[in-house]
């Protein structure tokens, strides 16, 4: 095929430059989408948090106004406190998941089916999980309500009780989260070096000692991921609160993610600036953890290469 000289020139230009150009060409579409929908919105939310804005009209500059208001806002304090409770109790998913994994790490007949069925709650939407637990807790006919009534003589409507509602929701959230941690540990246990276990057995190690000194160190990568996904899960809790209580009763089960949504988008009014300020606080809390995770991952990355 005959080629003009410009074609030839552009070909050879491409040939000598494709090595460094190709990665950028491959990255561009993904980076544009990610920058537009994830990176830029973070900065924009920071900016909006300094304004008073209903989402439609003019933005009015407030400076630190929204943040000052947060300080005196009791609903904000309740949400923040609940977030701390979520974080602490959600961590239970890690040891319980490990326990379940150890329980299931056997080779009897049908064990694979058992493992899948134990993992089941994680596959279901949190909306469905929330509905299931609402039914479980429901006053008068809920199973748990009746169980408590049978034991103590008086039923408790957990989701209608301001002091208990948050704990009821967290229990529902733990259900899929435990399943997730379990599957991480099952995979981890599968890959524990058998010769080390045998060696430790010969040295007389067993039970908890074996678990603590031989198994857990080898499960460290699984533990790291379990902690990461559990922290993120705890701080992202929105679906269950929204489905099970709508933040009630009397706002007692709100968390920051739900309170933010309520302020910015629900019938309580479109206070975008105030909502953004709540989101910024939540983001900063998450940043503490994110930077820890990233720091560790970067260190591992350097160790690898």
């Amino acid at each position: 095929m005959a080629m003009t000289s410009t074609e030839l020139r552009s070909r050879s230009w491409w040939r000598s430059n494709q090595q460094w150009l190709t990665p950028w060409l491959f990255l561009t579409p993904g980076l544009i989408m990610f920058a537009l929908y994830v990176v830029w919105p973070i900065f924009e939310s920071f900016r909006i948090s300094f304004y008073n804005w209903d989402g439609l009209g003019e933005k009015r500059w407030l400076g630190w106004g929204n943040y000052v208001e947060l300080f005196g806002d009791r609903a904000f304090k309740t949400s923040l406190r609940n977030n701390v409770i979520w974080l602490l109790l959600y961590m239970l998913a890690v040891p319980i998941g490990l326990g379940l994994a150890i329980f299931l790490n056997q080779t009897v007949r049908g064990i694979r089916i058992y493992k899948s069925l134990f993992f089941f709650p994680f596959v279901i939407s949190q909306v469905v999980v929330g509905l299931m637990f609402s039914w479980f807790y429901a006053p008068n006919f809920g199973l748990l309500y009746n169980l408590i009534e049978w034991v103590t003589g008086k039923g408790i409507a957990i989701l209608a009780d301001p002091t208990l509602a948050t704990y009821g929701i967290i229990a529902a959230g733990l259900w899929p989260q435990i399943a997730y941690c379990m599957i991480l540990y099952l995979t981890g246990l599968n890959n524990v070096a058998p010769d080390q276990i045998e060696a430790a057995r010969l040295d007389g190690a067993k039970g908890l000692k074996m678990l603590w000194f031989v198994i857990l160190p080898q499960l460290r990568p699984a533990t790291f991921i379990a902690v990461v996904v559990t922290v993120i899960g705890a701080l992202r809790s929105f679906d269950l609160v929204s489905i099970m209580t709508n933040g009630g009763p009397f706002g007692s089960s709100r968390v920051l993610s739900y309170y933010m949504y309520e302020q910015a988008l629900s019938e309580y009014g479109y206070r975008m600036g105030y909502g953004a300020a709540i989101a910024v606080v939540l983001f900063l809390i998450m940043m503490v953890f994110i930077s820890g995770f990233i720091w560790k991952m970067m260190r591992d990355e350097r160790g690898d290469r």
């Binding site: 830029w40 939310s45 929105f238 709540i278 989101a279 939540l282 983001f283 998450m286 953890f289 990233i294």
Partner: peptide, 19 residues
């Protein structure tokens, strides 16, 4: 790590601008 970090971000910080 930009992609990795973006994963961990709480949805609420994106909500208003994305909408």
């Amino acid at each position: 790590f930009l992609f990795v970090a973006g994963n961990f971000v709480p949805f609420q910080i994106l909500m208003i601008p994305v909408r």
